[in-house]
Measured scan of single mutants.
Amino acid sequence: EGEAHRVLFGFVPETKEELQVMPGNIVFVLKKGNDNWATVMFNGQKGLVPCNYLEPVELR
């Protein structure tokens, strides 16, 4: 579910809505907001990550 994206930079959450991710993680974007935040799914957890920390990736 969602579009696959690769994480470019590590992100440490500052609020409980945000999700910690590391460079190279593959996350699935469920929704992109107008505020430059994306709702993503990673390892069964859902949370917010900055859009500019993500790049689309083709999964084969």
Rank of each mutant, 00 (worst) to 15 (best):
V29N: 05
T39V: 09
Y53R: 09
V27Y: 01
L48S: 09
F28D: 13
A4S: 08
K46Y: 11
E55L: 06
K31S: 14
Q45E: 15
G2M: 11
G24D: 06
H5P: 00
F11I: 04
L48V: 06
M22Y: 14
Y53H: 14
T15R: 14
V57L: 13
D35R: 06
T39G: 03
F28A: 12
R6D: 06
K32L: 05
R60S: 15
G44D: 10
K32E: 03
N36M: 04
V7L: 02
W37Y: 10
Q20H: 13
A38T: 04
K46W: 05
M41H: 11
K32R: 11
Q20W: 06
K16H: 09
M41I: 11
D35A: 06
A38G: 01
T15S: 13
P50L: 00
N52C: 12
L30C: 06
K46H: 06
E55P: 00
G2L: 05
V21I: 09
E55Y: 07
L19D: 01
G10V: 08
H5R: 02
G47W: 02
F9E: 14
L54A: 06
L19R: 02
F11G: 02
L54K: 01
P13H: 01
G10Q: 14
E58V: 11
G10N: 12
K16M: 09
V29P: 07
G33T: 13
Q45R: 15
E3K: 14
E3F: 09
T39Y: 11
P56A: 10
N36W: 02
N34G: 12
P50N: 02
V49R: 01
V27L: 04
E1L: 10
D35Y: 05
L48M: 11
Q45L: 06
Y53L: 11
L48Y: 12
F28P: 04
L59K: 15
V29T: 02
E17V: 08
R6C: 05
V57S: 04
L30R: 06
G47H: 00
Q45C: 07
K31E: 14
R6T: 07
H5I: 01
N52W: 05
E14W: 07
N52F: 05
G10D: 12
K46N: 07
N25T: 11
E3D: 11
G24P: 03
F9V: 14
K32V: 09
T15A: 10
P56K: 12
V7W: 00
V49W: 05
F42L: 09
L8E: 03
H5Y: 09
W37G: 02
V27K: 00
R60V: 14
L8C: 07
V7D: 00
E1D: 08
K46E: 11
K46Q: 11
L30D: 07
M41T: 13
P50H: 03
N43E: 14
F11R: 13
F11L: 05
D35C: 04
F11Y: 15
G44A: 03
M22S: 15
Q20K: 14
E58W: 07
L8S: 07
K46A: 08
E55K: 09
L54Y: 00
G44H: 03
T15H: 12
M41C: 12
E14T: 14
E1I: 12
V49T: 01
P13S: 07
G24I: 02
V27H: 00
L59G: 15
G10E: 14
L59A: 15
E55F: 03
G10R: 14
V27C: 07
E1H: 08
M41Q: 12
N36V: 00
K16Q: 11
N52E: 14
V27P: 01
Y53E: 02
P56L: 03
N25Y: 06
E1W: 07
N34E: 14
H5Q: 05
E14M: 10
A4K: 11
L54G: 00
D35W: 01
G10K: 15
Q45V: 06
Q45N: 11
P56I: 01
E17R: 10
N52S: 13
L59I: 10
V29S: 02
K32S: 06
H5M: 06
H5S: 05
C51Y: 15
T15C: 08
G47D: 03
G24W: 01
Q20D: 07
T15F: 07
N34M: 15
K46P: 05
